[in-house]
Simulated scan of single mutants.
Amino acid sequence: MQNLNEKYEIYQKRLDKKADRLASLMNDAKWLKLCEILDASECKGIRVKLLSSGEEIALICGFGCLEDGYFDCANGAILFKDLHWVFVPKFYEQTRMNRTEKLASNFISNPLEAVLDATTKAGKFDYEIDENGLKIYGYR
């Protein structure tokens, strides 16, 4: 059975191979700026796509970053270089309950214009915005 260090090394090698085939658009400093912007905006419903697995993950909490190149939340720690993109939806669902009965959800808008304005002031970010939300790319 492989130990944790061996598994991490295999993960790093696979990630590096995939990253080498794409144009990297973000470095750690830009990821930290983006983390600060998203944290300050209090956006909800954020999703990320992992480069290593192609998996899309809905984040359980906000978008917090650790200074040593990791993104951190209740889903676990993720390397910045494993973030293919970050998606901030135009609206997020706020579920409502009355004891055990689920009520109609509220859909609340995220401050996308404020996020876009802050990212524009912070530097050059590769993004797309449409009626669904804002997608910020780590790789293309």
Rank of each mutant, 00 (worst) to 15 (best):
Asp117Gln: 05
Arg99Cys: 10
Asp117Ile: 03
Leu38Val: 04
Asp82Asn: 04
Arg47Ile: 12
Gln94Asn: 06
Ala29Lys: 13
Leu32Trp: 12
Ile37Cys: 08
Glu93Val: 06
Asp130Gly: 03
Lys90Ser: 12
Glu67Val: 07
Ile37Lys: 02
Gly45Lys: 03
Phe125Met: 09
Trp31His: 09
Asp130Arg: 00
Lys44Met: 13
Glu6Asp: 12
Trp85Ala: 02
Pro111Ile: 02
Trp31Tyr: 09
Gly69Lys: 01
Leu34Asp: 04
Ala114Glu: 04
Thr95Leu: 12
Met26Asp: 08
Lys7Gln: 13
Cys61Tyr: 11
Leu25Ala: 09
Gly45Arg: 03
Tyr70Arg: 09
Asp72Met: 14
Phe87His: 03
Phe63Ile: 00
Asp72Cys: 14
Val88Tyr: 05
Gly76Lys: 01
Tyr70Glu: 14
Glu101Lys: 03
Leu59Thr: 02
Tyr8Glu: 15
Lys135Asp: 06
Ser105Tyr: 03
Ser52Asn: 12
Gln12Glu: 15
Ile60His: 11
Ser53Gly: 06
Asn110Cys: 05
Thr120Met: 12
Ala114Asn: 01
Glu128Trp: 05
Leu15Met: 05
Gly69Trp: 02
Lys102Glu: 14
Leu116Pro: 00
Asn5Tyr: 13
Gln94Ser: 10
Ile60Leu: 12
Lys17Asn: 15
Met97Gln: 04
Phe91Gln: 13
Lys7Thr: 13
Asn3Gly: 09
Cys61Asn: 11
Trp31Lys: 00
Leu38Phe: 07
Leu22Ile: 06
Arg14Thr: 14
Leu25Trp: 03
Tyr8Ile: 12
Lys121Ser: 15
Gln94Thr: 05
Asn75Asp: 15
Lys30Tyr: 10
Lys49Tyr: 08
Gly54Cys: 05
Glu131Lys: 05
Cys35Ser: 11
Gly62Met: 01
Asp16Ser: 10
Ala77Val: 14
Ser53Thr: 08
Leu34Tyr: 02
